[in-house]
């Protein structure tokens, strides 16, 4: 398990993807793993993107990512979508609108389902931000679920929160 943390710190994308899965599943070793990573966090700028469904959060995430890449910054993206309260399954469609970034190996995009958590994020989203931060991403962009009126949990995690609204 220490190997996994070491590999993440050395820049293994595969290790980061697997570690995210462990944390997402709230594995019994999660706390221990996060403790090992924590000293390496605090360097990434965390940008939250929230707003109503269909206003363009994913599209904006893709565009901002592309501007950051032009400035030679590395980017991690966490795209959160809701889980079905009936089946527990989820359709994660944010990648469709992130085509420009998805061909770029320096951009790590991870789709997450809320798994029953309210507030626009999954319960473990903040930990996944820390993993991408420790990995060495300069920026971590968190795109929330399409939200209504009071899902503002992202503001606690992000350094800057952008609220995307439809005109009119």
């Amino acid at each position: 398990m220490d190997d996994l943390v070491a590999e993440v710190l050395q820049g293994s994308v595969r290790a980061m993807a697997r570690l995210i899965t462990l944390i997402e599943n709230e594995d019994s070793r999660a706390l221990y793993l996060m403790a090992a990573l924590y000293p390496h966090t605090g360097n990434a700028y965390v940008l939250g993107i929230t707003g109503s469904p269909g206003t363009g959060k994913s599209t904006l995430t893709d565009k901002i990512t592309s501007v950051l890449r032009d400035r030679e910054q590395t980017v991690g993206v966490i795209a959160v979508d809701p889980s079905s309260p009936f089946t527990g399954g989820a359709l994660l469609g944010d990648r469709i609108r992130m085509q420009r970034s998805s061909g770029d190996a320096e951009v790590f995009i991870r789709s997450m389902a809320t798994r029953g958590n309210l507030g626009g994020l999954a319960r473990t989203t903040a930990d996944i931000v820390k993993i991408m931060d420790a990995f060495g991403k300069d920026w971590v962009i968190v795109e929330t679920v399409g939200v209504g009126q009071d899902e503002v949990e992202i503001a606690k995690t992000a350094d800057t929160t952008i609220v995307v609204l439809a005109p009119g």
Binding site: V13, R14, A17, S83, S84, T87, G88, G89, A90, L91, L92, G93, R95, I96, R97, Q99, S102, G103, A105, F108, I109, R110, S111, A113
Partner: peptide
């Protein structure tokens, strides 16, 4: 998704490289 899985749809016109990068991430 209705069978309880978490499904990422990547969209149209993917190269094998894009698909594998998505599977990796």
């Amino acid at each position: 998704a209705e069978a309880g899985m978490e499904v990422v749809y990547t969209g149209l016109r993917q190269t094998p490289e894009m698909i594998v990068e998505a599977a990796l991430q």
